[in-house]
Each structure stands twice: as structure tokens, then as C-alpha cells.
Computed example of a mutant assay.
Amino acid sequence: MKQLADTGYVPGDKAPSSIPAIKKGLAIRLIRDYQLYLLALPAIAYLFIFNYVPIYGVLIAFKNFNAVQGIWGSDWAGFEHFRRFFHSYQFGPILRNTIGLSLYQLVVGFPIPIMLALLLNQTRNKRFKSLVQTVTYAPHFISIVVMISMIFIFLSPRTGFVNHLLTFFGHEPVLFMGDPAYFKTIYVLSGVWQNTGWGSIIYLAALASINPELYEAAKVDGASKWQQILKIDIPSIMPTAVILLILNVGHIMDVGFQKVFLMQTPLTAASQEIISTYVYKMGLINTDYSYSAAINLFNTVINLVLLIAVNQVARRASDTSLW
């Protein structure tokens, strides 16, 4: 509207007469700020080349892909690969494992960084605060491979310190990595230990932007630490938490492939199968590219639907959303 007003457009006039003026204004801005556009050009080109150009590969999911014939030359299969997956005996267990593991991780892992940030924000001893931050941030930089190796060592029935503790208190050693009942808990709790400190950074940044005068006024009114957290801290970080919750729900079907795959053992592989590991095995090991592409496309569509739905709910409930 401002652009139309700048061109002298008055309601009732013919809008097409203002189009050349708008184009002229756009050209002027491009010439005036060409350095900024050139600076953004590499990032735009990278995004276009690696995120948008490969989208045409989605056609593999609707074809009987043959590497010799290529994507366009392969025979059309329609929704055959989707029907094959939906009617597969593995569809139900894989979907349950994926959703169950994701929800477990979201319910347990999402609030803990918020709680850590709130506690650190109320800590006045800077040395202690720095120590806690360093200790909680450090696990994030451990690679997934090293993390899984540590888990196998710590939970070993022979040499693991967890089983040594159980034996010390009179219990029998437990084969944690060979029992499917422990898989989800081990996966989630190890992820909490590794990512809690790193996840709290964004909440600490939001808390740092709170006006100190609010705390001073709360103290004058006799508010306790708990009341300050409830009335000042939590409302201040709520928009950030809602945005991160929306993003996490949008990835609820994307459980980390590498960690789950490395944690699988011959005794528990069938019960630990999720969509990403199943796609890997079907696509790269069995070379069934069209079938694996169809499963991955189904996974992506579910994530997109969840993202849009949760974003709409958040916008109506809290006036905070991605768009």
C-alpha cells in the first residue's frame, strides 16, 4: 500500500497505471542497494541449487527407477510404492516406533533446557554459573559415534559401572543394550544429557533481554524467586518456547538416524526399527530406490502437515507462530 501511495495512486483510479511506477521503484532499489543483493546472492544460489533443484528427484517415488534409464526414462508406477509400504507388515511397528520415540524425546527433552535456563538465570554466583554452563555444554560436542561407544561401555553387563552399581546393591547384571524395553529410555536420557546445556542457550539469551527494572520492581513488591520466575521469566521466554516447540513438532517424524542405527543390536534391531533406518536399509542396502523414496516422501508430508497444524494452533492460542 505504501508503494502505491508513493506512486500517487488514489482509490478509484486504475491500478494498472501504477505498475510501471512500482517497477521503476524496484529497479531504483536494486541499483541503490546492489551491494546487499550481491552479498546475499551466494546464500540464495546455495539454497536454490541444493534445496530446490533436487526436488525433481521426488519423481523417483512415483516410478520404477532404473539408474540406466534415469529418472525421466524410468517406467511410471504411480502410487504403487506407497500402497506397498502401507500394506507391509512393517508399516505399523515402524510408525509406532518412530512416533513413540519422538514423543518420548519431546516430552522429556523439551522442558529440561527451559528449567536449566531458568535456574541459571536466578544464579547470582558467576563462577558457579560459568562452571555449570561449561559442564552442561561440553557433552554437545561429543560425536554420536563416541557417545554410542560410551553408552555400550557404561552399560556393559561385565565392565559397565551401571551394572557394577547394581551388583553392589545385590541385583543381577542387566543386558541393557540387548533388551528392547530399555532402548527408548537409553536413547532419550542420553540425548537429554548431551543436548540440555546447548538447548538452554537460546532461552538464556531470551532471559538476558528482560529489563532488570522488572526484577527490581518485583523485589520491592516482596516477590520471591519462585514468583519472579512465574511472573517475569516464564512469560518472557514463552514466545521463544512456542516457536521451538513448533519446529520440534515439525520434525517429529525425523528421529536421528545415526544414533538409532548405531544403537541397534542383533537382539533388538527389529523392535528398534524407525522410518529413517528402514529407508536406509531399503534404499542403500537393498537398492530399492523408488520404494525408499516413497517412504521418505510420506515421512516428509506428515512432518509438513504437523508443522502447519501446530503453527495454526499456536497462532490462535498464543498469537505466536512461524507465519
Rank of each mutant, 00 (worst) to 15 (best):
L59V: 06
I31C: 10
V108D: 01
A67H: 01
K23L: 14
F85R: 02
Y56K: 04
I94V: 12
F48I: 09
Y52N: 03
I19E: 08
I28G: 04
L59A: 13
Q35Y: 08
L38Y: 05
G92K: 15
A77W: 04
R32L: 07
Y52H: 03
A27S: 06
F62I: 08
H87N: 08
I22D: 02
K23N: 08
D75I: 06
N64P: 06
S74M: 05
V107L: 14
V53E: 01
W72T: 14
F79A: 13
S102A: 15
S88H: 07
V58Q: 11
L47W: 15
W76M: 09
I28P: 00
A77S: 13
I44H: 00
R32G: 02
R29E: 14
L39N: 04
I49Q: 02
F65D: 04
L101Y: 13
A67E: 03
F86R: 14
L95K: 06
Y89D: 14
I71K: 02
V107S: 02
D75G: 12
K24L: 10
L47R: 03
F48W: 05
R96A: 14
Q105D: 14
A21N: 06
F62M: 14
V107K: 00
P20C: 02
I55V: 11
Q90D: 12
L103F: 07
P20I: 07
I60T: 06
A61F: 01
A27N: 11
F62L: 04
Q90L: 11
W76N: 09
